[in-house]
């Protein structure tokens, strides 16, 4: 991936959610940690243009998140903290197909791609199931499939293992590690970022550590005071 932030800050009303930051991210596996309200989710949303910078600019693979916001959304897929909110059609395969339909693809192509992506995530058996009946782990996998099917090069995952039991957590973690796409994982689950190439730590709206997982996690314990 090639993400560049130049003097970028975010303000909501009079609250500085992210202090001015200049940063370049080029690795394939990146993790982001921090306490609640530290600015890590704001940072993640900044990268795919869901949040626009108040000052400065953000470029994702050469695209500006303000000027080319549609293109950025296609380039960087976002998997939300509560994947339930992301699946918006009643049946799994319809949900996955819906994103493709709006791109004007022929029906044949849509069903082929839908089947392929479900198979890739090992959830072909869920194709005709109702979205609201899926388990937590299934929902997370289907949510990932629904984003990956549209072909983003970068995936941003916000708390992907939140509320999952041990077995589902393991399954989702393995799936993320095996993805062909570049990933940025925001999480409280330190096990999930132990092996990333670069781990960022946010605290009170500032980037305070940026390095290998071992170092950054040590800082995190200091900041959290435990």
């Amino acid at each position: 991936m090639d993400i560049r932030l130049t003097d970028c800050s975010v303000r909501f009303g009079d609250r500085e959610a992210l202090h001015p930051l200049t940063l370049a991210l080029g690795e394939r596996r990146i993790g982001i940690i921090g306490l609640n309200g530290s600015g890590k989710t704001t940072f993640a949303r900044l990268i795919n243009g869901l949040v626009k910078p108040t000052t400065g600019r953000v470029e994702v693979n050469g695209l500006d998140t303000v000027k080319d916001d549609r293109a950025v959304l296609a380039e960087a897929g976002f998997i939300f903290q509560n994947p339930q909110h992301q699946l918006i059609m009643p049946i799994v395969s319809d949900d996955i197909a819906f994103g493709l339909k709006n791109r004007g693809l022929p029906a044949k192509e849509i069903s082929l791609r839908t089947e392929a992506v479900l198979a890739r995530f090992g959830v072909s058996h869920l194709a005709r199931r109702r979205v609201h009946e899926l388990s937590g782990g299934e929902t997370q996998l289907v949510a990932m499939a629904s984003v990956v099917v549209t072909g983003p090069k970068i995936l941003i995952l916000d708390e992907p293992t939140n509320q999952l039991d041990l077995r589902n957590r393991r399954m989702v973690a393995d799936t993320i590690e095996a993805l062909d796409e570049d990933t940025i994982v925001i999480t409280h689950d330190l096990g999930l970022v132990e092996r990333v190439e670069r781990l960022l730590l946010f605290h009170e709206g500032r980037l305070i550590a940026d390095g290998s997982p071992g170092e950054t996690i040590r800082y995190y314990h200091e900041v959290a005071g435990c």
Binding site: G77, N82, H85, I88, F98, G99, R103, S146
Partner: peptide, 17 residues
């Protein structure tokens, strides 16, 4: 209250392109 997240997800997935 879910409307904002659902709307963000719809836009993020390009459903209304």
């Amino acid at each position: 209250k879910d409307a904002d997240t659902i709307a963000a997800a719809i836009d993020a997935r390009g459903f209304r392109r």
